[in-house]
């Protein structure tokens, strides 16, 4: 590909859409992390492992149904619930006893959880590469702006905003969402008015992890599902959450867009160093606005 070809409007816009759909996956994962970060004040290092579990269980469910469309839709519904269950067990059995402890200890715990979950995935699914198929009507590409664009990415462009709106409705219109938001700002006060903060934390943790699982299930048809995908996503998620503003859900959206789109254009302009661009964007943002683009709840 010579540069005369790649810099056409069609290529730019299609690459923009690819970046946008990548940003949707990142947003779904990062909004979960941001939610946990906002309420519990813990950067959940195990978030990437839960994302990986989401992808692997989507594979299992889809295989169970012989790769049919039903299997795919069921995988999309059930695997986030599997992840939520795993996180609920980890939270109630171990994590909830540590809330009074130092912050670094909580971080250390999520790291230990990452190690354990990573090996449990290896035990359960093995170290092979896995993949699943999207349903027929989401395969292939359609022409947009004179270049072809994968249908599945288009599907993600619809799912992303749906998740964003649901999250907005959840945190602003439901009682538990409001309590969680209040706990993010002032947890002592929430405890003082007679709400069981421990259960609020549990709910926030499980919801955050559910989103990680949903992200994993959604990404499953696009990538080869393998060990190590936890390490790849977690660092990106950390950075996105930071540039967005710690604990701010809309910040996660802004951060994901920046990250996804710089990555996509990096591929276009300088493929060899494509992974450098998002990091560079993050560095520039953090130097200019150290506390992130939007207001942090911290």
């Amino acid at each position: 590909m010579d540069s005369g070809y790649i810099l056409t409007f069609a290529a730019l816009s299609s690459q923009f859409l690819v970046g946008l759909s990548r940003a949707m996956i990142l947003f779904i994962v990062c909004s979960g992390m941001s939610f946990v970060l906002g309420v519990l004040r813990v950067p959940n290092v195990a978030h990437g492992s839960l994302y990986m579990i989401g992808a692997f269980s989507a594979f299992s469910i889809s295989t169970l149904f012989g790769g049919s469309s039903t299997g795919f839709w069921l995988a999309l519904i059930i695997s986030p619930l599997v992840v939520a269950l795993v996180s609920l067990i980890a939270e109630r059995a171990l994590f909830c006893h540590l809330y009074e402890r130092e912050h670094l200890m909580l971080l250390l715990f999520t790291f230990a959880l990452m190690l354990i979950l990573g090996d449990l995935v290896k035990l359960t699914w093995g170290a092979d590469y896995r993949s699943i198929m999207a349903p027929p009507f989401l395969r292939g590409s359609i022409p947009i702006f004179g270049s072809s664009f994968p249908r599945y990415n288009l599907f993600l462009l619809i799912v992303g905003p749906v998740v964003a709106i649901s999250l907005y409705l959840f945190t602003n219109k439901t009682k538990i969402g409001k309590i969680a938001r209040a706990a993010a700002v002032d947890r002592e006060m929430v405890g003082a008015v007679g709400i069981n903060v421990s259960w609020v934390f549990a709910a926030a943790f499980v919801i955050g992890c559910y989103l990680a699982g949903l992200g994993g299930a959604l990404v499953a048809p696009m990538v080869s599902i393998t060990l190590g995908m936890d390490h790849d996503i977690i660092i990106e998620a950390f950075l996105i959450v930071t540039i967005g503003g710690l604990g701010n859900m809309w910040g996660a959206l802004v951060g994901s867009l920046i990250f996804g789109i710089t990555q996509a254009f990096g591929v276009l302009f300088w493929p060899q160093f494509a992974i450098v661009f998002p990091y560079l964007a993050v560095v520039i943002i953090l130097i200019l606005r150290p506390t992130g683009m939007l207001k942090s709840v911290w």
């Binding site: 230990a112 959880l113 990452m114 190690l115 090996d119 449990l120 035990l123």
Partner: peptide, 8 residues
């Protein structure tokens, strides 16, 4: 896995 358990 062992390391994670020891850490916890």
């Amino acid at each position: 896995l062992i390391l994670g358990i020891i850490l916890i």
